[in-house]
Design a binder for these strands. Structure first.
Lengths: 260, 260
DNA sequence: CAAGTGCTTCCAGTGGGTGGAAGGATGTGG
DNA sequence: CCACATCCTTCCACCCACTGGAAGCACTTG
């Protein structure tokens, strides 16, 4: 950028994006100096760029001077294919699944090595859980993740297993051999099961949404209290929802290939 | 910006934002030249900036060369207060309302002179409707809009009525006098009713979510087929949901003031 | 195979971007 | 009341990242 820059080679655009990158679920409201510090930009520069974002309504300045993500950014984000193609098609099926179970319902896709939560439904009777729309959780510790991983190519699975696997609870399966067996069972029976592998006290049953070539596009899960878990009862409605979404996506022609 | 710019006075940031502004629901997938034309920027400049956005994953390049909104933009947008505060709190109440009616459920806030849809639930039995999350519809023609407008300040209502009102159907109430009477009734009975005012064939019953000072923070609605409409039956569960959300927001302390 | 359409790359010239510094606003505690 | 800390806002002289016309490439069409 022009001027007396302290970090030559960095573009204006990259600085604006660095500012947006400082926002995450633990930092959804930040002061100017906080943004400046976390983005690694001088205060004056941050001030100028943040003001431009506020004018556009991509950020919003609260009464106490803190900044949060604004309406415009929210609106633009909702134009992505995850929302207008996948979520819009899946929602009625997720609702039906919710009616049948009244438990937490998840819809997720794979992005890199993460399960990315696209939708989450929960009622008053559902157990409280940590996931939220937009959240990322590891593939090997979640129901949706294992359903997705099980239908990935052998190369992808190998690469995934080659990296160190996080262990959120003592029940998380991190041994490559055991995990592979679990994934094979998942493919065989048509659904994945987790038992307190991500959070103590909650279990899940998940089914993959496959495209016409058998590639995993998304996954649907029901998350329940570990005491109430009865996979054989939950699996049929979950699979029905997943298959319904798959058929509907296929009918809508264009692929929903959103991950790389 | 530096260089041989054709439009002096325009910042780099404003150009990046102009590129994002070219995306809307009717243009969720665009070619580079389309973005360039719609943003009013030279092709070479657009190319460079779009590439930076793609690298950041704010935009995504499809196989056919078109661009769509990417994951990063979607993720950041979900960090806004509408999603993490309002939606998260409201969802269980909306689910309960859905269970009771199995019709389309709307949650909206006011932004300027528009009703901005924050959440929409619909099952297979719900009638198909045009609204979607992120959509904007006029305040005077929608249930949520009238519920919000009815509880705004007299000054705001006056200003709103002073501008020309759009008329989506022949049933839309555009006469200031009639609309005011309708809004007074809305306040009095505690809920708003629309009868084919936005779309022929659909009616709605809506209730406002008020903060502790009585200011309208959001509105909840049920949208049904005009034949099945029975406002007196739908109103109680809708009001219950709205009041539940209001109480829960109040308990969560901080205001959800997101509009200006 | 020429003409059209759309994308990518190049690079000389320059004006918008930069950030240290100064000043203002607010808070705190002695 | 003042000293000190923290945070935000404004200013401006210097200069480098940005610009966009043009040329080249890829692909389609008649």
């Amino acid at each position: 950028m022009a001027g007396r820059t302290s970090q030559p080679g960095q573009s204006v655009t990259s600085r604006v994006l660095a500012i947006l990158d400082t926002f995450d679920i633990a930092h959804s409201r930040q002061s100017l100096s906080e943004i400046s510090r976390r983005a690694g930009l001088p205060l004056a520069t941050t001030h100028r760029l943040v003001n431009e974002l506020v004018t556009w309504r991509g950020l919003r300045r609260c009464d106490d001077g803190h900044y949060e993500v604004g309406l415009r950014l929210w609106e633009v984000g909702l134009l992505g294919p995850l929302h207008i193609r996948l979520r819009e098609v899946a929602l009625p099926f997720l609702q039906t699944l919710y009616e049948a179970t009244r438990e937490n319902i998840h819809l997720a896709v794979r992005d890199g090595y993460d399960a990315l939560y696209v939708e989450k439904l929960s009622g008053h009777r559902s157990i409280p859980i940590i996931s939220r729309v937009g959240a990322r959780l590891p593939l090997h510790a979640t129901g949706v993740g294992k359903a997705l991983l099980a239908h990935e190519t052998p190369e992808f699975r190998r690469d995934y297993l080659a990296q160190p696997l996080t262990r959120p609870t003592r029940y998380t399966i991190v041994e490559p051999g055991r995990l592979l067996t679990d994934l094979e069972q998942t493919v065989h029976r048509g659904y994945a099961v987790t038992r307190e592998e991500m959070t103590l006290g909650s279990c899940s049953v998940a089914a993959p949404v496959l495209d016409r070539h058998g590639r995993p596009v998304a996954a649907v899960a029901v998350v329940v209290d570990s005491i109430r878990v009865e996979p054989t009862k939950l699996a049929p409605p979950v699979r029905l929802a997943a298959e319904g979404i798959a058929a509907r996506l296929d009918a809508t022609a264009s692929d929903v290939a959103v991950h790389g």
